[in-house]
Simulated assay, not measured.
Amino acid sequence: MNKLKKLVVLVLLLIVITIQPAYAEDIGAGSKIFEANCAGCHINGGNIVRRGKNLFKKALKRNGIDSMEAITELVTNGKNNMPAYKDKLTAPEIQDVATYVLQQAENNWRH
Protein backbone atom coordinates (compact mmCIF):
# COMPACT_ATOMS: atom_id res chain seq x y z
CA MET A 1 0.00 0.00 0.00
CA ASN A 2 2.82 2.41 0.78
CA LYS A 3 4.40 1.83 -2.66
CA LEU A 4 1.04 2.45 -4.33
CA LYS A 5 0.64 5.79 -2.53
CA LYS A 6 4.13 6.83 -3.61
CA LEU A 7 3.38 5.86 -7.20
CA VAL A 8 0.10 7.83 -7.18
CA VAL A 9 1.86 10.89 -5.74
CA LEU A 10 4.62 10.62 -8.34
CA VAL A 11 2.12 10.34 -11.20
CA LEU A 12 0.12 13.31 -9.92
CA LEU A 13 3.28 15.36 -9.53
CA LEU A 14 4.31 14.58 -13.11
CA ILE A 15 0.87 15.58 -14.36
CA VAL A 16 0.96 18.90 -12.50
CA ILE A 17 4.47 19.68 -13.74
CA THR A 18 3.66 18.98 -17.38
CA ILE A 19 0.24 20.68 -17.64
CA GLN A 20 0.41 24.11 -19.28
CA PRO A 21 -1.81 27.05 -18.32
CA ALA A 22 -5.09 27.37 -20.24
CA TYR A 23 -3.77 30.18 -22.46
CA ALA A 24 -0.23 28.92 -22.90
CA GLU A 25 0.01 29.45 -26.61
CA ASP A 26 3.42 29.73 -28.25
CA ILE A 27 5.06 32.61 -26.36
CA GLY A 28 8.12 32.60 -28.64
CA ALA A 29 5.93 32.92 -31.71
CA GLY A 30 3.87 35.61 -29.98
CA SER A 31 7.02 37.60 -29.30
CA LYS A 32 8.12 37.39 -32.93
CA ILE A 33 4.66 38.33 -34.21
CA PHE A 34 4.52 41.26 -31.78
CA GLU A 35 7.92 42.53 -32.89
CA ALA A 36 6.96 42.28 -36.56
CA ASN A 37 3.47 43.80 -36.31
CA CYS A 38 2.91 45.66 -33.05
CA ALA A 39 6.19 47.00 -31.67
CA GLY A 40 6.19 49.91 -34.11
CA CYS A 41 3.43 51.55 -32.06
CA HIS A 42 3.73 49.55 -28.83
CA ILE A 43 7.48 49.50 -28.19
CA ASN A 44 8.16 48.04 -24.72
CA GLY A 45 4.42 47.99 -24.06
CA GLY A 46 3.95 51.71 -24.60
CA ASN A 47 1.89 53.44 -27.26
CA ILE A 48 3.41 56.13 -29.47
CA VAL A 49 -0.01 57.16 -30.83
CA ARG A 50 -2.07 57.39 -27.61
CA ARG A 51 -0.20 57.18 -24.30
CA GLY A 52 -3.22 56.05 -22.28
CA LYS A 53 -3.78 53.07 -24.57
CA ASN A 54 -0.55 51.30 -23.64
CA LEU A 55 -0.19 47.59 -22.90
CA PHE A 56 0.65 47.79 -19.22
CA LYS A 57 -1.60 45.86 -16.85
CA LYS A 58 -3.18 48.96 -15.28
CA ALA A 59 -4.10 50.46 -18.69
CA LEU A 60 -5.37 47.14 -20.05
CA LYS A 61 -7.64 46.79 -17.01
CA ARG A 62 -8.79 50.43 -17.17
CA ASN A 63 -9.65 50.04 -20.86
CA GLY A 64 -11.37 46.65 -20.41
CA ILE A 65 -8.79 44.81 -22.50
CA ASP A 66 -7.24 42.62 -19.80
CA SER A 67 -8.34 39.16 -21.00
CA MET A 68 -7.45 36.81 -23.82
CA GLU A 69 -10.87 37.33 -25.34
CA ALA A 70 -10.68 41.13 -25.27
CA ILE A 71 -7.14 41.30 -26.68
CA THR A 72 -7.97 38.74 -29.35
CA GLU A 73 -11.05 40.75 -30.35
CA LEU A 74 -9.07 44.01 -30.53
CA VAL A 75 -6.20 42.52 -32.55
CA THR A 76 -8.63 40.74 -34.87
CA ASN A 77 -11.02 43.62 -35.57
CA GLY A 78 -9.10 46.74 -34.53
CA LYS A 79 -10.66 49.85 -33.00
CA ASN A 80 -10.12 53.57 -33.58
CA ASN A 81 -6.38 54.02 -34.40
CA MET A 82 -5.67 50.31 -33.84
CA PRO A 83 -5.76 48.48 -37.18
CA ALA A 84 -7.45 45.09 -37.66
CA TYR A 85 -5.16 42.13 -38.23
CA LYS A 86 -7.77 39.52 -39.23
CA ASP A 87 -6.57 39.62 -42.85
CA LYS A 88 -2.87 39.62 -41.95
CA LEU A 89 -2.59 37.12 -39.06
CA THR A 90 -4.15 33.70 -38.55
CA ALA A 91 -6.34 32.98 -35.52
CA PRO A 92 -3.53 30.98 -33.84
CA GLU A 93 -1.08 33.85 -34.46
CA ILE A 94 -3.52 36.29 -32.87
CA GLN A 95 -3.86 33.95 -29.88
CA ASP A 96 -0.07 33.77 -29.61
CA VAL A 97 0.33 37.55 -29.63
CA ALA A 98 -2.51 37.98 -27.11
CA THR A 99 -0.81 35.48 -24.81
CA TYR A 100 2.47 37.33 -25.21
CA VAL A 101 0.86 40.70 -24.39
CA LEU A 102 -0.80 39.33 -21.24
CA GLN A 103 2.44 37.69 -20.12
CA GLN A 104 4.43 40.87 -20.70
CA ALA A 105 1.80 42.95 -18.90
CA GLU A 106 2.11 40.62 -15.89
CA ASN A 107 5.90 41.17 -15.98
CA ASN A 108 5.48 44.96 -16.42
CA TRP A 109 7.14 44.62 -19.85
CA ARG A 110 10.53 43.76 -18.29
CA HIS A 111 12.68 41.40 -20.33
Rank of each mutant, 00 (worst) to 15 (best):
M1Y: 12
N2D: 09
K5A: 15
K6A: 15
K6I: 14
L7A: 13
V8P: 03
V8K: 04
V9Y: 08
L10T: 15
L10G: 06
L10W: 07
V11D: 03
V11Y: 05
V11R: 09
V11G: 07
V11I: 15
L12R: 07
L12G: 12
L13A: 12
L14R: 01
L14D: 02
L14Y: 01
V16N: 10
I17A: 15
I19S: 11
Q20H: 04
Q20M: 13
P21C: 09
P21W: 09
P21F: 13
Y23Q: 11
Y23R: 05
A24V: 12
E25Y: 15
E25Q: 15
E25N: 15
E25M: 08
I27H: 13
I27R: 07
G28L: 07
G28A: 13
G28W: 01
A29Y: 13
A29D: 14
A29Q: 12
A29C: 14
G30A: 07
G30K: 11
S31N: 15
S31F: 12
K32A: 15
I33L: 11
F34K: 08
F34I: 07
A36P: 06
C38M: 04
A39K: 14
H42G: 03
I43A: 14
I43L: 15
N44Q: 07
G45R: 03
G46D: 05
G46R: 04
N47P: 04
I48G: 02
V49L: 02
V49E: 02
V49Y: 05
R50M: 10
R50F: 10
K53G: 00
N54W: 02
L55Y: 04
L55V: 01
K57Q: 12
K57Y: 05
K57I: 06
K57V: 08
K57T: 12
K58R: 03
K58I: 02
A59L: 02
A59H: 02
A59V: 00
R62Q: 08
N63R: 05
G64Q: 05
G64T: 01
G64Y: 02
G64W: 06
D66V: 06
S67I: 08
M68A: 11
M68N: 14
M68C: 13
E69K: 15
A70Q: 03
I71Q: 07
T72E: 13
E73W: 11
E73H: 13
E73G: 04
E73M: 14
V75C: 10
V75R: 09
T76C: 00
T76A: 09
N77L: 10
N77W: 06
N77E: 03
G78C: 02
G78D: 01
G78I: 03
M82Y: 01
M82W: 01
P83W: 00
A84L: 10
Y85K: 09
K86I: 10
D87T: 13
D87K: 14
D87V: 09
K88S: 13
L89K: 01
L89D: 02
L89M: 01
A91C: 03
A91E: 15
P92Q: 06
P92Y: 11
I94L: 09
D96Q: 13
V97D: 11
V97N: 09
V97E: 06
V97W: 10
A98K: 01
Y100H: 12
V101I: 15
L102G: 08
L102Q: 14
Q104F: 08
Q104I: 07
A105V: 11
A105G: 04
A105N: 05
E106C: 00
E106Q: 08
N107G: 05
N108T: 00
W109D: 00
R110H: 08
H111N: 15
